[in-house]
Design a protein around this nucleic acid. Structure first.
Lengths: 126, 126
DNA sequence: CATTGACTTGGAGCAAGCTCCAGATGTTAT
DNA sequence: ATAACATCTGGAGCTTGCTCCAAGTCAATG
């Protein structure tokens, strides 16, 4: 697949795909004889994986490390697992924080809907 | 309260507190005769609110708008409510995306734990 | 074979959200 | 009153994660 096709398929700009490759997120994308990127299915799977992780806010740094370990072979399995565990724990913590904020937003929206706000000074309504 | 006290209480740097004030997130913090910030309880409530919203990833831009409307009085209630609704919906969508990624991470971690990975080529294990 | 459009690289630029700094002024303890 | 320390302002700098650009090459079409 060309970069334009991958770009369209995963809704990531060609610039972003090149950037990801440059920083080591998509290992060694092959080129045609003319030097043009030719994404294999395996490359596409990496792209999809990265997109999913990024969509959840996982940092590039962690993904770069994971990909690098992956390329180093089976012996790095435990390290890779640790990265995944750390990221999962961060994600879980973040979601818990967001859940609290979500509840607070819902409470406030409910207040607005019920016209409970009598005064700008009602601190709870912030 | 001094900025140092507020900083400690909410675990936000003094620089961040000054920054928030500068961009309009903490309306008109009063000063002592010497020109030093003197946070009231109301100011602290704003700080706490902003910290909570920021912790969930809500953008400064939306918060600035909300605070500005709040200062304009009761007539802006509906607009403020709309901001809260939009932010809540974004938050909900983001959490749904994160939930999917979380499940994927758990699946992969489980694979690592069960030594299911036989080969680097097993795409599902990425 | 010439033109048009996609792709290449390396590097610069940008947006959000802080974070740090300098130089001046305020506050507190001895 | 004089260190020593906190705070002030305005502005510069930093980090993450892209995004854009220039100048050149490759590929497809008439």
């Amino acid at each position: 697949m060309t970069i334009a096709e991958v770009s369209k398929k995963y809704e990531l700009s060609a610039d972003t795909l090149r950037y990801y490759e440059r920083i080591g997120l998509i290992p060694c994308v092959g080129r045609t004889s003319g030097g043009i990127r030719n994404y294999t299915d395996a490359d596409c799977n990496w792209v999809e994986f990265i997109k999913c992780m990024r969509g959840a806010g996982i940092q590039l740094e962690a993904l770069i490390e994971y990909v690098a370990l992956f390329q180093q072979g089976e012996a790095t399995g435990e390290s890779r697992k640790q990265i995944l565990i750390e990221q999962r724990d961060r994600l879980t913590a973040k979601m818990a924080e967001m859940q609290k904020t979500l509840e607070r937003l819902n409470f406030k929206i409910n207040n607005y809907e019920n016209h409970i706000i009598q005064s700008e000074k009602m601190l709870e309504s912030r």
